[in-house]
């Protein structure tokens, strides 16, 4: 019962963070700032939702359920490692492409000689 409550809370917080990420992706002014919203909102909300689902899986503590929990945690670690990497690779690609950067004092060129 306690586990259920904890997992409901985790999933709800995860969805709230996902709302933040989605709104950020829509609202932020340029590619780089959208990347912040996408990369971070994505990772954290995914982590919390998967943790909640994994804990919910444990409400019957059998060996098979523990293994499923382990697999879900494995996916979590997998995405936690890969997500910053793909964020980095994409933002670097964008930077070298020369996408303009939005700043307070008007636009600044990203990477154009």
């Amino acid at each position: 019962m306690i586990i259920d409550t904890i997992s409901i809370c985790l999933i709800c917080i995860g969805i709230v963070f996902f709302i933040g990420g989605a709104v950020g992706i829509l609202r932020f002014p340029d590619f780089y700032t959208r990347m912040h919203a996408a990369g971070k909102g994505d990772t954290c909300s995914m982590f919390l939702i998967l943790l909640g689902l994994g804990l919910y899986q444990l409400h019957e503590p059998t060996l098979a359920n523990f293994l499923v929990f382990g697999k879900i945690m494995f996916i979590t670690i997998f995405i936690m490692v890969t997500s910053p990497t793909s964020t980095h690779a994409l933002i670097k690609a964008g930077f070298e492409e020369g996408i303009k950067m939005w700043t307070r004092n008007g636009e600044k060129k990203g990477n154009v000689k």
Binding site: G20, C44, T103
Partner: peptide, 25 residues
């Protein structure tokens, strides 16, 4: 990571112009 998400959430849900936004390298 959780702090960073709270930060993004606060920024994304600011009504009107986002004052805090000031990107730099």
């Amino acid at each position: 990571i959780i702090l960073s998400n709270v930060h993004i959430l606060k920024m994304a849900l600011t009504p009107g112009e986002i004052k805090e936004l000031d990107p730099s390298l």
